[in-house]
Amino acid sequence: MPVYPMMSLDLPGKIIKGVEKICRGFLWKGQKEAKGGHCLVAWDSVCLPKQLGGLGIPNLHPLNLALRARWRWLERRDDSKPWRGLALDTPKEVDDIFEAATSSIMGDGRSTRFWTDRWLGEERIRDSFLALTAAVRPRLVRQRTVREVLDGACIEDVGPNLGENALAEFLLLWERVQGFRLDGTVADTLRWNWSNDGVYSAKSAYLNLLAGRALDPYATEIWHSRAPLKCRVFAWLAARNRCWTADRLAKRGLPHPDRCPLCDQEEESISHLLLGCVLARQVWDTLFSAWGHRECVPSAGACLRDWWSTLSFQRRARKDFRTATTLVLWTIWCHRNDVVFNGASPSVQKMLFIILEELGRWENAGLLR
């Protein structure tokens, strides 16, 4: 629902926080609000795309800016809009996005803005010739086309009273544009550089606003499996060490078991529980031996993130193994919770039975080939 008003309005920060509060409560608690320990991951991280380590939930402020950039695009590309030519009230951030994302393919020079469009090299003239641009009236900087300037309008705009720096820049610019020739038979074309087809898309604008972050090396293992969403979300939390195991409870001074609930040998951490625990390694050994990949059985001190990166399977079977691996992690976690909260007895055979039974169901459902 917020997408429609965000296309034409700048949502106030208070409204964005209110919507995010509702989304946060729904995600972590299934209720109107979620506080404290219910929010396992910072909301800014949750809103990152999956390949960057998040859940792909839209971050409303960047999304608002990306959607507003559409107006600038339509103003320059679509002559059929009745509001074309009217003054658009868009934030400076939106104008900066549009200018950074677009470049002009020159034709007759009648629609390309001389000072503000990227048409002569990689940078805009406004950014390369600061002193000269400052000598031109702001309205002309925004409106002058390449055709008008090459026909002599630039000399009228700057006037005779140029400072030393502005005059030097004027001579340099004039030298650069002297050899430029326009094609009067073809109209200028505005290109959106952030998409492959050169056309504006809100997705490309949004993703580029989040650019510069490192890719999550485990995103492929987690999200390219066919496991149900709750299992993949658990794997995402486990990879970020955000599950409430004993080590995290201890750091916050909360009640916690002194030893692993399954093996009763070491302090419980997510890597120990899912990989290093004696019962967990028996489960992995049994399954990987049956699958013909016993070399993938984790060692006693294995780290979940490091172990995940060492797994390698044949290309055709890779997605099936990712799905099965996610199921094993999920089953061990569920069995641990059954032991802690329901008083069940730790059992390798019970976990194996649940895994094999569930694999059969997933195969019947088409999750496994």
Rank of each mutant, 00 (worst) to 15 (best):
T133G: 05
A134D: 15
A134I: 08
R137G: 11
R137E: 14
R139P: 02
R139K: 15
V141I: 10
V141R: 09
R142T: 06
R142W: 09
Q143C: 11
T145M: 01
V146H: 07
R147K: 02
R147L: 07
E148W: 02
V149W: 06
L150V: 00
L150N: 03
G152R: 07
A153I: 05
C154A: 09
I155T: 10
E156I: 13
E156V: 14
D157Q: 00
G159D: 09
G159M: 09
P160E: 12
P160R: 12
N161I: 02
N161H: 03
L162K: 00
L162F: 03
L162N: 04
G163I: 06
N165I: 11
N165L: 12
N165T: 13
N165P: 05
A166P: 05
A166R: 08
L167A: 13
A168R: 15
A168K: 14
E169Q: 02
L171S: 13
L172R: 14
L173D: 04
L173W: 06
L173M: 02
W174P: 11
W174Y: 15
E175A: 14
E175R: 15
R176M: 12
R176C: 12
R176G: 02
R176P: 04
V177R: 10
Q178A: 12
G179A: 09
F180P: 00
D183I: 00
D183P: 03
D183N: 05
G184P: 03
V186Y: 05
D188E: 10
L190S: 04
L190E: 10
W192H: 07
W192R: 06
W192A: 08
W192M: 07
N193A: 02
S195E: 15
S195M: 12
S195T: 15
N196C: 05
N196Y: 04
D197S: 08
D197N: 11
G198L: 06
V199M: 15
Y200D: 06
K203D: 02
K203W: 01
A205M: 01
A205I: 01
Y206H: 05
L207E: 13
N208F: 06
L209H: 01
L210H: 11
A211F: 00
R213Y: 01
R213H: 06
D216E: 10
D216C: 13
P217E: 02
A219P: 00
T220I: 14
W223I: 07
W223R: 01
W223L: 04
W223G: 03
H224C: 14
S225T: 05
R226D: 13
R226L: 13
P228A: 09
L229E: 12
K230E: 08
C231W: 00
V233N: 07
V233I: 15
A235P: 08
A235S: 15
L237F: 01
L237V: 05
L237C: 07
A238Y: 04
A239C: 15
A239V: 12
A239G: 11
N241P: 07
R242M: 02
R242H: 02
C243R: 10
C243H: 10
W244Y: 03
W244V: 05
T245C: 12
A246Q: 04
D247W: 06
A250T: 03
K251L: 11
R252K: 15
R252I: 09
R252Y: 10
P255R: 03
